[in-house]
């Protein structure tokens, strides 16, 4: 790695850190501005005198000035302490930690689906363009992109879950195989739209590359068509494919809220919905920060990988 390249990487990482800092400020302040008083949530139902409320506010530090509260929170976050959940009477870290594996499994399986099915079908769509198969791919893409995940969830549950009974329709499952069995339908519901998008991008990127003269040159040199497709068409189409996969996967955490709720799974997404309902601010803050962090980190990774995919970007000094 050249010094210039090293500097470019360092700059990207610094940019990522600054983005995360700015995000933390926005996340914290947006909840500060949100309606609803956490103190009245804490006393829940019971009538409390203004003095009692004030005491609670003081105890939890709600009456400190905004910068002080932000600083305390940020200091905690940097040390891995996201505060306490009012709802679960546990530290936010523990609450998140217990929910995280289910969501990571869901996102992981969905990512695999997007990459394998999305890219695979996209390649078929490009190579079979103008045939019956090619038209079928286009139709699938159009329909798939138009199906929201909650509709997909309902259809999958009622058909594959209830009617055919192939898959469980609710819960997380226990043990490795059972968990995987439980996650199939939610993962499909989560990734239908994303698969369609990746298929579309793959197809058009491949078609763009198929038209390039270097592809004809490679064919003119007697390389078999399969080899040319792999080494010159797919390889060159990777740029847009990786970029869009990165964007979709990094934004996927948000969509787990809908799918996890629909399938009664206990994960980060359903936790977000629950804690927003119950005004469990500390948890909401931590999850939103997590979602944004995932987005920023994955996209930074894509940016760092991109020069390996297209060496011309390297020449431009990493400025893209």
């Amino acid at each position: 790695m050249t010094p210039g390249r090293l500097w470019a990487v360092a700059r990207r990482l610094l940019g990522m850190a600054l983005t995360l800092l700015a995000t933390s400020f926005l996340v914290f302040s947006s909840l500060y501005l949100a309606p609803g008083d956490p103190a009245s949530f804490l006393v829940r139902g019971r009538s409390a005198s203004p003095q009692e409320l004030a005491a609670i506010r003081h105890q939890y530090g709600f009456d400190d000035p905004f910068p002080v509260r932000y600083w305390h929170w940020l200091d905690g976050v940097l040390h891995g302490d996201f505060g306490r959940s009012y709802l679960f009477h546990q530290s936010v870290g523990e609450v998140l930690w217990s929910r995280l594996p289910a969501t990571l499994l869901l996102v992981g399986v969905s990512t695999l689906l997007i990459a394998v099915v999305g890219i695979g079908v996209g390649i078929v769509g490009a190579l079979r363009r103008g045939t019956r198969t090619g038209s079928a791919v286009l139709l699938l893409v159009t329909v798939g992109a138009a199906v929201p995940s909650f509709v997909a969830a309902i259809v999958l549950r009622s058909v594959l879950g209830v009617r055919l009974g192939w898959f469980p329709t609710i819960g997380n499952g226990t043990g490795v195989l059972d968990r995987l069995h439980h996650v199939v339908l939610p993962a499909i519901a989560l990734s239908v739209t994303f698969m369609a998008l990746v298929t579309r991008v793959t197809r058009s990127a491949m078609l763009d590359e198929l038209r390039r003269e270097h592809v004809e040159v490679a064919l003119s040199r007697g390389l078999p068509r399969r080899t040319v497709i792999r080494r010159h068409v797919l390889r060159n189409a990777l740029g847009p494919i990786v970029t869009v996969c990165g964007l979709l996967v990094s934004g996927m955490l948000v969509s787990t809220a809908i799918v996890e709720t629909a399938f009664g799974m206990s994960g980060i997404g359903s936790l977000l919905v629950q804690s927003v309902d119950e005004l469990d601010f500390q948890v909401v803050q931590a999850i939103v920060l997590l979602v944004v962090a995932a987005f920023v980190v994955v996209n930074t990774l894509v940016d760092l990988v991109y020069p390996l995919i297209d060496p011309r970007v390297r020449a431009a000094g990493g400025a893209r």
Partner: peptide, 16 residues
Amino acid sequence: ASMIFQDPRAGINPVR
């Protein structure tokens, strides 16, 4: 037989 194409910038894969 082999062929030399007009524009080497277009004819040689830029990412390899």
